[in-house]
Nucleic acid binder design. Structure first.
Length: 254
DNA sequence: ATGGCTACGATCCGTAGA
């Protein structure tokens, strides 16, 4: 199973890129974030024609998540139980016997802001959810835009970013608390080249300078991680005209 | 230099992203 995650930054604008990439990369499951459209406008038919079933939870302008899969997603659930939130950031489903969670973690804006507090509360709620879900589904993956660069080697300029949102101690602690549940960063299961990132600022020629962060991740439960045979970032779609600022990340399981 | 780009939904600028 090839399982991918991609923050498309508007599914409406990025649909041509997505369809092209699905045909080229041939993933079995794709978690999408930042759809930025309501459910009534979800391009279900186009994706069906490309060979993918869809489960989605969208909203106008902001957020929105989807799971695309060659097999029908079953037992779909929206949001985090017992965490009231208008923002559509979480979607879960069973696909081919694997529990798949698609997450669009809050950005946090700046350290100490109201949105930063929300981000940390949100991560605490996600942790509770994952703890319960892992006990029910030992074969589980969490894929999405986590908005956390776990270590300095995931940051193009750690000095410049020190203490900032996306890399702050509290965010990295929240990240490690997820891993402590029995999840593994699939990317780090393998020897990787240096300076691999998944997001580059649109401004300041971020992509051309490779001034990026690795904030999009595919986590696998310890049980599922035993079957992980590859994990990488696909930079190709970031090179196209009018790209998303994120590149897809992809993990393969036997 | 606290800007810079992109998307969106509102107007011809503000909010948000990261």
């Amino acid at each position: 199973m090839k399982l991918a995650s991609w923050n498309v930054n508007s599914l409406k604008v990025r649909l041509p890129h997505l369809l092209e990439w699905l045909a080229q990369a041939q993933p079995d499951v794709v978690c999408l974030q930042e759809l930025k459209l309501e459910d009534a406008k979800f391009p279900r038919a186009e994706l069906q024609a490309a060979g993918y079933h869809s489960a989605f939870s969208g909203q106008k302008t902001y957020n929105g998540v989807a799971i695309l899969a060659r097999s029908p997603p079953l037992e779909v659930s929206v949001g985090i139980p017992d965490f009231q939130d208008e923002q559509k950031r979480v979607l879960a489903a069973m696909v081919d016997g694997v529990r798949v969670l698609c997450v669009y973690c809050p950005n946090g804006q700046s350290v100490g802001s109201e949105k930063y507090d929300y981000k940390l509360r949100w991560f605490a709620a996600l942790r509770q959810y994952l703890a319960a879900d892992l006990s029910r589904h030992p074969i589980l993956a969490v894929a999405g835009d986590f908005n956390v660069a776990p270590e300095d080697r995931d940051v193009h300029d750690p000095k410049a970013w020190e203490g900032q949102v996306l890399v702050s101690d509290a965010e990295r602690s929240a990240w490690r608390a997820l891993l402590a549940l029995g999840l593994v960063d699939s990317f780090r299961l393998f020897e990787q080249p240096e300076k691999i990132y998944s997001w580059w600022d649109y401004r300041m020629l971020g992509f051309r300078r490779n001034a990026g962060l690795r904030i999009d991740h595919v986590l696998a439960s310890v049980e599922l991680a035993k079957r992980c045979i590859a994990s990488s970032v696909d930079k190709a779609p970031r090179k196209l005209e009018r790209p998303s600022d994120h590149a897809p990340v992809i993990a393969e399981f036997s």
